[in-house]
Design a protein around this nucleic acid. Structure first.
Lengths: 133, 133, 133, 133
DNA sequence: TTTT
DNA sequence: TTTT
């Protein structure tokens, strides 16, 4: 049954890709989402009066074509909207310790801001642009 | 049961507000979402090679505090993320014709871009800023 | 940009299908979602103390393969989870009056209950079962 | 910015609650969501022809009133729809090993099926029923 | 590690 | 009516 995640946030690091032995292209990036922190129903503020943010860092995984697109057009600092699903992994590390990790497998990634690099500044509607969003 | 809408798009016109006779503040704005148009599984392009966009115009309704915030900080052209629910209305117009309309009742509105006006450029984290997002 | 709808509710009538002149199969059904009605921040109750429900009736549209599946396995009264997008249509009726309608174009439909008819009672995991959910 | 999760699935174990030293009531349950497993774009089937399911087990956390409601009305095997957000935790266990865990902080929990126990069979619309959904 |  |  449905396992759906929607995240709107900022990319923490430029995406990184690798290819598995079965020739699947896997691309990863991290995404920060933030919300105001509350205490007793009120927004918390720091000593200067600024709202305290609570940031979650999500690990996003893209496969194949979507990964290729993300690799080409997404970079650190950009705002994106990710739709995907949560996936949990359990494995045993070299010391024999059981480890758990969580990732968001992306189905779509939409731009909410534009790349800063010159060579990516063509815009989403450029005829040569292969961005699906 | 659940009736949930998530929209990320651009505001079409500055929000407008009115107060009902029971003293409820109602704020409206329109929001454009777009997606590439497809035909036979392929993205459609115009004669210049640009991807053809299919735009939906949503009518967004906010009540009370959320409406006040939107009225103060949202303006034409800004990108926002709306979470809410769909609501349908049926009424009879002056000519006695049955009319239907659809609106999205917003529960949250998040900024994805910043206002262009000087006086709103303080940033989301300003201590005087009452934006809940 | 994103236009996403999630609806969990009950099917109002058995789905109906037609084929367009370009050979697209279109399947429609109606879906009821409900929520408690509120007044002054409190759940409204009727004279017997039961919570007053506010029901929205959504018009759901499915294309091609998804429509075929829905037609075969969904029926009046079943609970389903629909993921899709909102689409608005404007047209002029025979009297020359401008009409508007709204529909939810489904991308996925998941079962939350089982069909009542004998011939559909095989369960989602039957090897002959072509339900994608 | 937005961090939104929608899960529709089955409860794995009866919910369990505890109260923190600051008097916050915390209720936990596990939720299974499943999807067909794919390989090379096709649904995988086992040797008997049944579709292979990929199940994710989510840890759901509810606070205060929502937790109380869940504790009273949700039980193992029920189908529910959870809306919430992802939260990641990092801590050091007794052996000094860094551990990570992920939980879904629920904002709403909707019933998609009914409890099996006699004493809970009153239905969602019973006047004595405090279920907010 | 991002962003305002 | 927005945006690229």
């Amino acid at each position: 049954m449905q396992n759906l995640v929607i995240l709107a946030g900022n990319i923490g690091q430029d995406p990184e890709s690798r290819t598995t032995i079965n020739n699947t292209r896997i691309t990863h990036f991290t995404l920060a989402t933030s919300r105001p922190r509350y205490a007793e129903g009120k927004v918390l503020r720091d000593k200067d009066g600024y709202r305290v943010q609570e940031t979650e860092w999500h690990r996003i995984t893209c496969f194949n074509g979507l990964g290729k697109t993300v690799e080409q057009h997404c970079q650190k600092g950009m705002k994106v909207l990710v739709r995907g699903r949560i996936h949990y992994t359990k494995w045993t590390d070299r010391e024999g310790i059981e480890r758990y990790s969580t990732e968001i497998i992306a189905e779509t990634v939409d731009f909410l801001s534009w790349p800063k690099r010159e060579d990516d500044s063509r815009g989403a509607n450029d005829p040569d642009d292969e961005i699906p969003f």
